[in-house]
Amino acid sequence: MTPETSAAAQNPRLNTANGTAPRPTRRQHDVDPTLKGLSLLRVLSSELQKILTMRAAWWLGVGALLLVLLFAWISAISLSSMLRWQQEDPLSAPPERVMRDMALETPLTGLAFAAILVGCIGVIAITSEHATGSLRSSLAAVPRRTLLYTAKGLAVALVLGVLTAVLILGILLIAVPTAATHGLAPDLTAGETWHRLITHWVGVVLAGLIGFGLGAVLRSTAGGIVTLAILLFVLPMSLEILLAMAGDSALIETLHRWQFANLMTSFTVPDPQLSDQMSTLTAGLGMVAWTAAATVAGGLLFRRRDA
């Protein structure tokens, strides 16, 4: 054994590469292993703060609330007119059961329009990070992209869930007293009422999550919002027109049947016979499939692309 190898055996820090003196030892900063690290809950908390500190998200939320309140108010006026009509011409006016349904269902239609604003929050939750470059800061803190994307998606779902609940509450605060004054107050303990409220809530949140997925795929706020608007409004209208023009086309009928807006209509109506014979479960699964397609595609691209 040479003197160098012998010395190295005794002192592994000794540099014997050229048989000279050991390298000067440097201090090394050690990370305290007991300190907290990443977890889904912590990243979720961070993502919630991100959404709640975005002014655009608040403006969109306030806009959605004003929109549904406006719809509820117009619905209340409409209901009063119909009741007057019923008093004047009881034979041609809709039956009371239909009127009772309308007392809740018509105000809730505002949610279908508010869904685009709610969806915009989903879009900007992710595209704002791309647009501003803050995604680089986020990834420096949370380099595990699946964790970051999952937490972001959950945060979007939570925020939109609360927002949609507030929207529904706002609608009820206008619709229920108005209906009650005419003796048409919905039975808030009835399963049918809760079915309407919950399915509307789920539908709007899923539309928002589709917006989130589109934002992740397109990485563009304008692109995400336009695509969402096409999906929620333009595609249903286009398919309606095509269906009217070529009524016997099985392809167009199938597309129309499975487009998101039609599924949402079927999903929210308690009586399947009124919803083109598609059950609530089938419609719900169809909506989940749309949401999964957008969010999973977004997640895969988010994982793979350079930031």
């Binding site: 300190l35 907290k36 690290g37 990443l38 977890s39 912590r42 990243v43 908390s45 961070s46 703060q49 991100k50 500190t53 800061s137 986020s138 803190a141 949370v142």
Partner: peptide, 8 residues
């Protein structure tokens, strides 16, 4: 604060 939250 947003960044700090990710690590508690």
């Amino acid at each position: 604060r947003v960044l700090a939250s990710t690590h508690g």
